[in-house]
Design a protein around this nucleic acid. Sequence first.
DNA 1: CGTTATATTGATAGATATCAATACGGGTGG
DNA 2: CCACCCGTATTGATATCTATCAATATAACG
Lengths: 225, 225
Amino acid sequence: MPDLACSSLQGDDLCLPCGLARLAATPTGARLAHRRVQRGEPLFREGAAFSLLYAVRLGSFKSLVQGENGLEQVTGFHVEGDILGLDGLARQRHASTAVALEDAEVVALPCRDAGLDPLLPRLLSRELVRQRERLQLLVGGSAEARVATFLQEIARRMQVRGYSAREFHLRLSRQEIGSYLGLKLETVSRVFSRLQQQHVLRTQGRHVRVLDPAALAASSGAHPA
Amino acid sequence: MPDLACSSLQGDDLCLPCGLARLAATPTGARLAHRRVQRGEPLFREGAAFSLLYAVRLGSFKSLVQGENGLEQVTGFHVEGDILGLDGLARQRHASTAVALEDAEVVALPCRDAGLDPLLPRLLSRELVRQRERLQLLVGGSAEARVATFLQEIARRMQVRGYSAREFHLRLSRQEIGSYLGLKLETVSRVFSRLQQQHVLRTQGRHVRVLDPAALAASSGAHPA
DNA sequence: CGTTATATTGATAGATATCAATACGGGTGG
DNA sequence: CCACCCGTATTGATATCTATCAATATAACG
Protein backbone atom coordinates (compact mmCIF):
# COMPACT_ATOMS: atom_id res chain seq x y z
CA MET A 1 0.00 0.00 0.00
CA PRO A 2 1.38 3.43 -0.96
CA ASP A 3 2.49 5.45 2.00
CA LEU A 4 1.18 8.94 2.62
CA ALA A 5 4.22 10.81 1.39
CA CYS A 6 4.01 9.05 -1.95
CA SER A 7 0.41 9.67 -2.73
CA SER A 8 0.58 13.29 -1.66
CA LEU A 9 3.67 13.93 -3.73
CA GLN A 10 2.52 12.27 -6.89
CA GLY A 11 -1.03 13.45 -6.98
CA ASP A 12 -2.27 10.02 -7.89
CA ASP A 13 -1.92 6.50 -6.58
CA LEU A 14 0.80 5.56 -8.99
CA CYS A 15 4.00 5.90 -7.09
CA LEU A 16 7.05 4.34 -8.47
CA PRO A 17 9.22 4.30 -5.36
CA CYS A 18 6.38 2.42 -3.68
CA GLY A 19 6.07 0.07 -6.59
CA LEU A 20 9.80 -0.45 -6.45
CA ALA A 21 9.67 -1.10 -2.77
CA ARG A 22 7.05 -3.73 -3.36
CA LEU A 23 9.05 -5.12 -6.21
CA ALA A 24 12.22 -5.25 -4.20
CA ALA A 25 10.37 -7.21 -1.53
CA THR A 26 9.57 -10.01 -3.94
CA PRO A 27 11.93 -12.91 -4.57
CA THR A 28 12.62 -11.38 -7.99
CA GLY A 29 13.65 -8.15 -6.40
CA ALA A 30 16.33 -9.78 -4.36
CA ARG A 31 18.57 -10.02 -7.38
CA LEU A 32 17.84 -6.70 -9.06
CA ALA A 33 21.03 -5.48 -10.59
CA HIS A 34 22.36 -2.11 -9.50
CA ARG A 35 24.57 -0.14 -11.79
CA ARG A 36 26.63 2.97 -11.36
CA VAL A 37 27.09 5.57 -14.04
CA GLN A 38 29.66 8.33 -13.93
CA ARG A 39 28.88 11.93 -14.74
CA GLY A 40 28.82 12.41 -18.49
CA GLU A 41 28.58 8.70 -19.24
CA PRO A 42 25.62 7.21 -21.08
CA LEU A 43 23.38 4.67 -19.38
CA PHE A 44 22.23 3.53 -22.79
CA ARG A 45 22.38 4.90 -26.30
CA GLU A 46 19.75 5.57 -28.92
CA GLY A 47 19.54 2.59 -31.24
CA ALA A 48 21.07 0.11 -28.81
CA ALA A 49 19.23 -3.15 -28.24
CA PHE A 50 16.64 -2.77 -25.52
CA SER A 51 16.54 -5.24 -22.68
CA LEU A 52 16.13 -3.43 -19.39
CA LEU A 53 14.33 -0.52 -17.85
CA TYR A 54 16.19 1.51 -15.25
CA ALA A 55 14.96 3.23 -12.14
CA VAL A 56 17.08 6.14 -11.01
CA ARG A 57 18.26 5.57 -7.46
CA LEU A 58 20.70 8.43 -7.13
CA GLY A 59 21.77 11.37 -9.24
CA SER A 60 20.15 12.72 -12.37
CA PHE A 61 20.09 12.11 -16.10
CA LYS A 62 19.28 13.94 -19.29
CA SER A 63 17.83 12.10 -22.23
CA LEU A 64 18.44 13.16 -25.77
CA VAL A 65 17.87 12.19 -29.35
CA GLN A 66 20.03 12.90 -32.37
CA GLY A 67 18.41 15.25 -34.82
CA GLU A 68 18.72 14.34 -38.50
CA ASN A 69 21.43 16.99 -38.73
CA GLY A 70 23.45 15.24 -36.04
CA LEU A 71 22.68 17.88 -33.43
CA GLU A 72 21.51 16.45 -30.18
CA GLN A 73 18.25 17.57 -28.70
CA VAL A 74 17.54 17.25 -25.00
CA THR A 75 14.18 15.57 -24.47
CA GLY A 76 14.13 14.88 -20.78
CA PHE A 77 15.54 15.50 -17.36
CA HIS A 78 15.26 12.73 -14.79
CA VAL A 79 15.91 12.33 -11.11
CA GLU A 80 15.64 9.75 -8.39
CA GLY A 81 12.52 7.65 -8.76
CA ASP A 82 12.14 8.22 -12.50
CA ILE A 83 12.12 5.33 -14.91
CA LEU A 84 14.39 5.41 -17.94
CA GLY A 85 14.10 3.44 -21.13
CA LEU A 86 10.34 3.27 -21.55
CA ASP A 87 10.59 4.42 -25.14
CA GLY A 88 12.58 1.31 -25.99
CA LEU A 89 9.71 -1.10 -25.52
CA ALA A 90 8.03 -0.28 -28.83
CA ARG A 91 10.77 -1.49 -31.14
CA GLN A 92 12.89 -3.31 -28.60
CA ARG A 93 15.53 -0.72 -29.29
CA HIS A 94 16.28 2.41 -27.30
CA ALA A 95 14.77 5.47 -28.89
CA SER A 96 16.85 7.94 -26.90
CA THR A 97 20.18 8.24 -25.14
CA ALA A 98 20.39 8.72 -21.38
CA VAL A 99 23.43 10.50 -19.96
CA ALA A 100 24.24 10.97 -16.28
CA LEU A 101 24.45 14.63 -15.26
CA GLU A 102 26.28 13.66 -12.08
CA ASP A 103 27.55 10.41 -10.69
CA ALA A 104 24.46 8.27 -10.52
CA GLU A 105 23.11 4.90 -9.62
CA VAL A 106 20.25 2.97 -11.18
CA VAL A 107 18.44 -0.31 -10.61
CA ALA A 108 17.87 -2.47 -13.64
CA LEU A 109 14.30 -3.70 -14.03
CA PRO A 110 13.63 -6.71 -16.21
CA CYS A 111 10.65 -5.52 -18.19
CA ARG A 112 8.90 -8.85 -18.21
CA ASP A 113 8.55 -9.25 -14.52
CA ALA A 114 5.60 -10.29 -12.43
CA GLY A 115 6.17 -7.38 -10.08
CA LEU A 116 6.54 -4.65 -12.68
CA ASP A 117 4.13 -5.91 -15.29
CA PRO A 118 0.89 -4.62 -13.82
CA LEU A 119 2.45 -1.20 -13.20
CA LEU A 120 3.96 -0.79 -16.62
CA PRO A 121 0.93 0.30 -18.64
CA ARG A 122 0.02 2.91 -16.10
CA LEU A 123 3.56 4.22 -15.92
CA LEU A 124 3.65 4.51 -19.68
CA SER A 125 0.27 6.16 -19.77
CA ARG A 126 1.42 8.70 -17.22
CA GLU A 127 4.45 9.46 -19.33
CA LEU A 128 2.16 9.94 -22.27
CA VAL A 129 0.09 12.50 -20.40
CA ARG A 130 3.21 14.29 -19.21
CA GLN A 131 4.65 14.44 -22.68
CA ARG A 132 1.45 15.98 -23.93
CA GLU A 133 1.47 18.58 -21.20
CA ARG A 134 5.04 19.39 -22.10
CA LEU A 135 4.07 19.71 -25.72
CA GLN A 136 1.29 22.10 -24.89
CA LEU A 137 3.65 24.21 -22.87
CA LEU A 138 6.28 24.32 -25.57
CA VAL A 139 3.79 25.11 -28.28
CA GLY A 140 1.55 27.55 -26.48
CA GLY A 141 3.82 29.15 -23.93
CA SER A 142 6.12 32.14 -24.22
CA ALA A 143 9.83 31.83 -23.57
CA GLU A 144 9.23 33.15 -20.09
CA ALA A 145 6.48 30.63 -19.41
CA ARG A 146 8.69 27.79 -20.57
CA VAL A 147 11.64 28.75 -18.43
CA ALA A 148 9.47 29.47 -15.41
CA THR A 149 7.76 26.10 -15.71
CA PHE A 150 11.09 24.40 -16.11
CA LEU A 151 12.42 26.02 -12.97
CA GLN A 152 9.33 25.09 -11.02
CA GLU A 153 9.67 21.53 -12.18
CA ILE A 154 13.27 21.43 -11.04
CA ALA A 155 12.33 23.00 -7.73
CA ARG A 156 9.60 20.46 -7.15
CA ARG A 157 11.93 17.62 -7.93
CA MET A 158 14.63 18.98 -5.71
CA GLN A 159 12.12 19.12 -2.92
CA VAL A 160 11.11 15.52 -3.54
CA ARG A 161 14.74 14.59 -3.21
CA GLY A 162 14.95 16.34 0.12
CA TYR A 163 16.76 19.45 -1.07
CA SER A 164 15.61 23.02 -0.94
CA ALA A 165 13.08 24.09 -3.55
CA ARG A 166 14.33 27.65 -3.14
CA GLU A 167 17.94 27.21 -4.02
CA PHE A 168 19.54 24.67 -6.31
CA HIS A 169 22.18 24.01 -8.88
CA LEU A 170 21.16 23.48 -12.50
CA ARG A 171 22.97 20.59 -14.02
CA LEU A 172 22.27 21.76 -17.53
CA SER A 173 23.91 24.53 -19.55
CA ARG A 174 21.86 27.34 -21.09
CA GLN A 175 22.27 25.54 -24.36
CA GLU A 176 20.85 22.31 -22.96
CA ILE A 177 17.99 24.08 -21.22
CA GLY A 178 17.22 25.83 -24.48
CA SER A 179 17.26 22.56 -26.35
CA TYR A 180 14.90 21.06 -23.80
CA LEU A 181 12.56 24.04 -24.02
CA GLY A 182 12.72 24.72 -27.73
CA LEU A 183 14.60 27.99 -27.27
CA LYS A 184 18.02 29.36 -28.18
CA LEU A 185 20.53 29.72 -25.40
CA GLU A 186 20.53 33.50 -25.69
CA THR A 187 16.79 33.56 -25.12
CA VAL A 188 17.13 31.41 -22.01
CA SER A 189 19.80 33.74 -20.73
CA ARG A 190 17.65 36.80 -21.38
CA VAL A 191 14.70 35.30 -19.56
CA PHE A 192 16.91 34.58 -16.57
CA SER A 193 18.10 38.16 -16.63
CA ARG A 194 14.59 39.51 -16.88
CA LEU A 195 13.36 37.36 -13.99
CA GLN A 196 16.30 38.62 -12.02
CA GLN A 197 15.50 42.24 -12.74
CA GLN A 198 11.97 41.57 -11.54
CA HIS A 199 13.44 40.10 -8.33
CA VAL A 200 11.77 36.77 -9.00
CA LEU A 201 15.06 34.97 -8.69
CA ARG A 202 18.78 35.40 -8.42
CA THR A 203 21.08 33.45 -10.68
CA GLN A 204 24.79 33.15 -10.81
CA GLY A 205 25.69 30.85 -13.63
CA ARG A 206 23.94 27.60 -12.91
CA HIS A 207 23.19 28.42 -9.32
CA VAL A 208 19.59 29.51 -8.85
CA ARG A 209 17.84 31.02 -5.87
CA VAL A 210 14.09 31.52 -6.11
CA LEU A 211 13.15 34.75 -4.36
CA ASP A 212 9.47 34.85 -5.24
CA PRO A 213 7.90 31.45 -5.95
CA ALA A 214 4.48 33.00 -6.44
CA ALA A 215 5.76 35.36 -9.10
CA LEU A 216 7.56 32.46 -10.74
CA ALA A 217 4.31 30.52 -10.83
CA ALA A 218 2.60 33.54 -12.34
CA SER A 219 5.27 33.72 -15.04
CA SER A 220 4.55 30.17 -16.07
CA GLY A 221 1.17 31.16 -17.42
CA ALA A 222 0.38 31.37 -21.13
CA HIS A 223 1.43 34.01 -23.63
CA PRO A 224 1.26 37.66 -22.54
CA ALA A 225 -1.43 38.19 -25.21
CA MET B 1 1.96 -13.69 -37.12
CA PRO B 2 1.81 -10.25 -38.73
CA ASP B 3 1.12 -10.33 -42.41
CA LEU B 4 3.35 -8.61 -44.90
CA ALA B 5 1.21 -5.55 -45.47
CA CYS B 6 1.21 -4.83 -41.78
CA SER B 7 4.89 -5.01 -41.12
CA SER B 8 5.76 -3.04 -44.22
CA LEU B 9 3.30 -0.31 -43.40
CA GLN B 10 4.15 0.09 -39.78
CA GLY B 11 7.88 -0.15 -40.00
CA ASP B 12 7.98 -2.45 -37.00
CA ASP B 13 6.41 -5.66 -35.90
CA LEU B 14 3.80 -4.00 -33.78
CA CYS B 15 0.68 -3.93 -35.84
CA LEU B 16 -2.55 -3.27 -34.16
CA PRO B 17 -4.93 -4.57 -36.81
CA CYS B 18 -2.99 -7.82 -36.60
CA GLY B 19 -3.15 -7.78 -32.85
CA LEU B 20 -6.85 -7.13 -33.08
CA ALA B 21 -7.28 -9.95 -35.51
CA ARG B 22 -5.55 -12.24 -33.08
CA LEU B 23 -7.56 -10.85 -30.22
CA ALA B 24 -10.83 -11.28 -32.08
CA ALA B 25 -9.94 -14.90 -32.67
CA THR B 26 -9.82 -15.63 -28.95
CA PRO B 27 -12.87 -16.59 -26.92
CA THR B 28 -12.71 -13.13 -25.34
CA GLY B 29 -12.83 -11.52 -28.71
CA ALA B 30 -16.09 -13.16 -29.59
CA ARG B 31 -17.97 -10.72 -27.41
CA LEU B 32 -16.05 -7.53 -28.13
CA ALA B 33 -18.51 -4.68 -28.07
CA HIS B 34 -18.81 -2.55 -31.17
CA ARG B 35 -20.02 0.96 -30.90
CA ARG B 36 -21.03 3.58 -33.45
CA VAL B 37 -20.38 7.27 -33.04
CA GLN B 38 -21.95 9.98 -35.15
CA ARG B 39 -20.03 12.81 -36.68
CA GLY B 40 -19.39 15.50 -34.08
CA GLU B 41 -20.25 13.23 -31.18
CA PRO B 42 -17.73 12.39 -28.45
CA LEU B 43 -16.61 8.81 -27.91
CA PHE B 44 -15.50 9.77 -24.43
CA ARG B 45 -14.83 12.98 -22.58
CA GLU B 46 -11.87 14.28 -20.66
CA GLY B 47 -12.35 13.53 -16.99
CA ALA B 48 -14.83 10.69 -17.50
CA ALA B 49 -14.19 7.44 -15.68
CA PHE B 50 -11.92 5.21 -17.71
CA SER B 51 -12.90 1.65 -18.35
CA LEU B 52 -12.28 0.76 -21.97
CA LEU B 53 -9.85 1.33 -24.76
CA TYR B 54 -11.24 1.74 -28.25
CA ALA B 55 -9.86 0.64 -31.58
CA VAL B 56 -11.08 2.68 -34.53
CA ARG B 57 -12.74 0.40 -37.06
CA LEU B 58 -14.19 2.99 -39.41
CA GLY B 59 -14.05 6.75 -39.74
CA SER B 60 -11.78 9.19 -37.96
CA PHE B 61 -11.52 11.08 -34.70
CA LYS B 62 -9.84 14.12 -33.28
CA SER B 63 -8.73 14.19 -29.69
CA LEU B 64 -8.59 17.35 -27.68
CA VAL B 65 -7.98 18.72 -24.24
CA GLN B 66 -9.47 21.78 -22.59
CA GLY B 67 -6.95 24.49 -21.96
CA GLU B 68 -7.15 26.25 -18.59
CA ASN B 69 -8.87 29.12 -20.41
CA GLY B 70 -11.59 26.80 -21.64
CA LEU B 71 -10.31 26.81 -25.20
CA GLU B 72 -10.00 23.38 -26.70
CA GLN B 73 -6.72 22.28 -28.13
CA VAL B 74 -6.55 19.52 -30.72
CA THR B 75 -3.97 16.96 -29.66
CA GLY B 76 -4.51 14.14 -32.08
CA PHE B 77 -6.03 12.88 -35.30
CA HIS B 78 -6.90 9.20 -35.52
CA VAL B 79 -8.03 6.81 -38.18
CA GLU B 80 -8.88 3.18 -38.64
CA GLY B 81 -6.55 0.94 -36.66
CA ASP B 82 -5.61 3.56 -34.09
CA ILE B 83 -6.26 3.01 -30.42
CA LEU B 84 -8.04 5.64 -28.40
CA GLY B 85 -8.05 6.14 -24.67
CA LEU B 86 -4.50 5.12 -23.79
CA ASP B 87 -3.99 8.27 -21.76
CA GLY B 88 -6.74 7.19 -19.40
CA LEU B 89 -4.83 4.29 -17.93
CA ALA B 90 -2.64 6.41 -15.68
CA ARG B 91 -5.35 7.82 -13.46
CA GLN B 92 -8.22 5.60 -14.54
CA ARG B 93 -9.84 8.72 -15.94
CA HIS B 94 -9.78 9.94 -19.52
CA ALA B 95 -7.20 12.68 -20.02
CA SER B 96 -8.60 13.83 -23.35
CA THR B 97 -11.84 13.96 -25.29
CA ALA B 98 -12.29 12.03 -28.52
CA VAL B 99 -14.75 13.35 -31.10
CA ALA B 100 -15.77 11.64 -34.34
CA LEU B 101 -14.94 13.69 -37.43
CA GLU B 102 -17.29 11.57 -39.51
CA ASP B 103 -19.65 8.77 -38.70
CA ALA B 104 -17.43 6.17 -37.13
CA GLU B 105 -17.32 2.77 -35.56
CA VAL B 106 -15.07 1.48 -32.81
CA VAL B 107 -14.43 -1.77 -30.98
CA ALA B 108 -14.25 -1.61 -27.22
CA LEU B 109 -11.24 -3.34 -25.72
CA PRO B 110 -11.30 -4.35 -22.08
CA CYS B 111 -7.90 -3.17 -20.94
CA ARG B 112 -7.30 -6.07 -18.64
CA ASP B 113 -7.48 -8.77 -21.18
CA ALA B 114 -5.25 -11.73 -21.78
CA GLY B 115 -5.13 -10.97 -25.49
CA LEU B 116 -4.35 -7.27 -25.25
CA ASP B 117 -2.19 -7.27 -22.15
CA PRO B 118 1.11 -8.27 -23.73
CA LEU B 119 0.62 -5.72 -26.53
CA LEU B 120 -0.30 -2.82 -24.33
CA PRO B 121 3.13 -1.71 -23.09
CA ARG B 122 4.50 -1.72 -26.60
CA LEU B 123 1.55 0.21 -27.95
CA LEU B 124 1.98 2.78 -25.24
CA SER B 125 5.68 2.99 -25.83
CA ARG B 126 5.09 3.57 -29.51
CA GLU B 127 2.71 6.38 -28.70
CA LEU B 128 5.36 7.84 -26.46
CA VAL B 129 7.89 7.87 -29.27
CA ARG B 130 5.36 9.39 -31.67
CA GLN B 131 4.44 12.09 -29.24
CA ARG B 132 8.06 12.99 -28.87
CA GLU B 133 8.55 13.18 -32.58
CA ARG B 134 5.54 15.42 -32.80
CA LEU B 135 6.96 17.59 -30.06
CA GLN B 136 10.25 17.93 -31.87
CA LEU B 137 8.46 18.93 -35.02
CA LEU B 138 6.30 21.52 -33.30
CA VAL B 139 9.19 22.98 -31.38
CA GLY B 140 11.87 22.94 -34.02
CA GLY B 141 9.99 23.20 -37.27
CA SER B 142 8.77 26.23 -39.18
CA ALA B 143 5.11 26.73 -39.96
CA GLU B 144 5.75 25.31 -43.41
CA ALA B 145 7.49 22.24 -42.02
CA ARG B 146 4.64 21.61 -39.63
CA VAL B 147 1.94 21.86 -42.25
CA ALA B 148 3.90 19.82 -44.76
CA THR B 149 4.50 17.07 -42.22
CA PHE B 150 0.86 17.12 -41.25
CA LEU B 151 -0.21 16.71 -44.86
CA GLN B 152 2.22 13.89 -45.40
CA GLU B 153 0.91 12.16 -42.32
CA ILE B 154 -2.64 12.46 -43.58
CA ALA B 155 -1.59 11.23 -47.00
CA ARG B 156 0.12 8.21 -45.52
CA ARG B 157 -2.88 7.38 -43.43
CA MET B 158 -5.22 7.79 -46.34
CA GLN B 159 -3.11 5.37 -48.26
CA VAL B 160 -3.24 2.88 -45.39
CA ARG B 161 -7.01 3.12 -45.51
CA GLY B 162 -6.96 2.34 -49.19
CA TYR B 163 -7.56 5.87 -50.45
CA SER B 164 -5.36 7.99 -52.64
CA ALA B 165 -2.37 9.62 -51.00
CA ARG B 166 -2.46 12.29 -53.67
CA GLU B 167 -5.92 13.64 -53.19
CA PHE B 168 -8.01 13.73 -50.06
CA HIS B 169 -10.45 15.68 -47.98
CA LEU B 170 -9.30 17.24 -44.73
CA ARG B 171 -11.78 16.69 -41.96
CA LEU B 172 -10.36 19.51 -39.88
CA SER B 173 -10.85 23.25 -40.25
CA ARG B 174 -7.88 25.61 -40.59
CA GLN B 175 -8.49 26.49 -36.99
CA GLU B 176 -8.31 22.88 -35.87
CA ILE B 177 -5.25 22.19 -37.97
CA GLY B 178 -3.65 25.26 -36.44
CA SER B 179 -4.51 24.11 -32.97
CA TYR B 180 -3.00 20.71 -33.71
CA LEU B 181 0.16 22.26 -35.11
CA GLY B 182 0.58 25.12 -32.70
CA LEU B 183 -0.20 27.76 -35.32
CA LYS B 184 -2.91 30.32 -35.89
CA LEU B 185 -5.44 29.60 -38.59
CA GLU B 186 -4.24 32.50 -40.75
CA THR B 187 -0.75 31.06 -40.73
CA VAL B 188 -2.06 27.68 -41.83
CA SER B 189 -3.98 29.34 -44.62
CA ARG B 190 -0.93 31.29 -45.75
CA VAL B 191 1.20 28.17 -45.85
CA PHE B 192 -1.42 26.45 -47.98
CA SER B 193 -1.43 29.43 -50.32
CA ARG B 194 2.35 29.48 -50.54
CA LEU B 195 2.55 25.76 -51.26
CA GLN B 196 -0.06 26.31 -53.94
CA GLN B 197 1.92 29.11 -55.55
CA GLN B 198 4.93 26.81 -55.62
CA HIS B 199 2.78 24.18 -57.36
CA VAL B 200 3.38 21.73 -54.54
CA LEU B 201 -0.34 21.22 -54.07
CA ARG B 202 -3.74 22.50 -55.01
CA THR B 203 -6.29 23.22 -52.32
CA GLN B 204 -9.87 24.23 -52.50
CA GLY B 205 -11.16 24.62 -49.00
CA ARG B 206 -10.59 21.31 -47.31
CA HIS B 207 -9.98 19.41 -50.48
CA VAL B 208 -6.28 18.80 -51.11
CA ARG B 209 -4.46 17.48 -54.13
CA VAL B 210 -0.74 16.86 -53.79
CA LEU B 211 0.98 17.79 -57.03
CA ASP B 212 4.57 17.30 -55.96
CA PRO B 213 5.06 14.84 -53.10
CA ALA B 214 8.84 15.21 -53.26
CA ALA B 215 8.62 18.97 -52.84
CA LEU B 216 6.18 18.47 -49.99
CA ALA B 217 8.64 16.14 -48.30
CA ALA B 218 11.35 18.75 -48.82
CA SER B 219 9.17 21.37 -47.18
CA SER B 220 8.83 19.24 -44.08
CA GLY B 221 12.49 19.77 -43.22
CA ALA B 222 13.63 22.03 -40.41
CA HIS B 223 13.69 25.81 -40.28
CA PRO B 224 14.88 27.66 -43.40
CA ALA B 225 17.94 28.77 -41.42
C1' DC C 1 -31.37 33.27 -51.89
C1' DG C 2 -29.96 35.04 -47.82
C1' DT C 3 -27.29 34.07 -43.67
C1' DT C 4 -23.48 32.43 -41.15
C1' DA C 5 -19.25 29.98 -40.63
C1' DT C 6 -14.95 29.34 -42.79
C1' DA C 7 -11.11 30.81 -45.57
C1' DT C 8 -8.11 34.04 -47.85
C1' DT C 9 -5.38 38.09 -48.02
C1' DG C 10 -3.20 42.46 -46.43
C1' DA C 11 -0.88 45.61 -43.02
C1' DT C 12 1.35 45.83 -38.80
C1' DA C 13 3.17 44.51 -34.32
C1' DG C 14 5.47 41.48 -31.24
C1' DA C 15 8.41 37.75 -30.12
C1' DT C 16 12.38 34.98 -30.74
C1' DA C 17 16.38 33.91 -33.68
C1' DT C 18 20.56 35.36 -35.45
C1' DC C 19 24.91 37.71 -35.59
C1' DA C 20 28.39 39.78 -32.91
C1' DA C 21 30.96 41.50 -29.13
C1' DT C 22 32.12 41.33 -24.34
C1' DA C 23 32.31 39.36 -19.67
C1' DC C 24 32.71 35.75 -16.49
C1' DG C 25 34.72 31.48 -14.36
C1' DG C 26 36.99 27.39 -13.64
C1' DG C 27 41.02 24.99 -14.45
C1' DT C 28 45.95 24.57 -15.85
C1' DG C 29 50.55 25.56 -16.13
C1' DG C 30 54.05 28.81 -15.30
C1' DC D 1 49.81 32.33 -6.26
C1' DC D 2 49.01 34.51 -10.37
C1' DA D 3 48.26 34.68 -15.34
C1' DC D 4 46.41 32.79 -19.14
C1' DC D 5 42.80 30.20 -21.80
C1' DC D 6 38.73 28.18 -23.17
C1' DG D 7 34.07 27.05 -22.56
C1' DT D 8 29.99 29.33 -20.93
C1' DA D 9 27.08 33.23 -20.11
C1' DT D 10 25.49 37.86 -20.79
C1' DT D 11 24.15 41.70 -23.49
C1' DG D 12 23.25 44.48 -27.72
C1' DA D 13 21.65 45.36 -32.61
C1' DT D 14 19.11 43.61 -36.21
C1' DA D 15 16.51 40.19 -39.01
C1' DT D 16 12.90 36.92 -39.52
C1' DC D 17 8.90 34.69 -38.46
C1' DT D 18 4.38 34.26 -36.72
C1' DA D 19 0.51 36.54 -34.33
C1' DT D 20 -2.72 39.98 -34.42
C1' DC D 21 -6.06 43.07 -36.32
C1' DA D 22 -8.97 43.93 -40.12
C1' DA D 23 -11.28 43.51 -44.44
C1' DT D 24 -13.03 40.73 -48.01
C1' DA D 25 -14.23 36.48 -50.32
C1' DT D 26 -15.90 31.99 -50.50
C1' DA D 27 -18.37 28.04 -49.03
C1' DA D 28 -21.73 25.64 -46.37
C1' DC D 29 -26.50 25.45 -45.06
C1' DG D 30 -31.15 26.35 -44.07
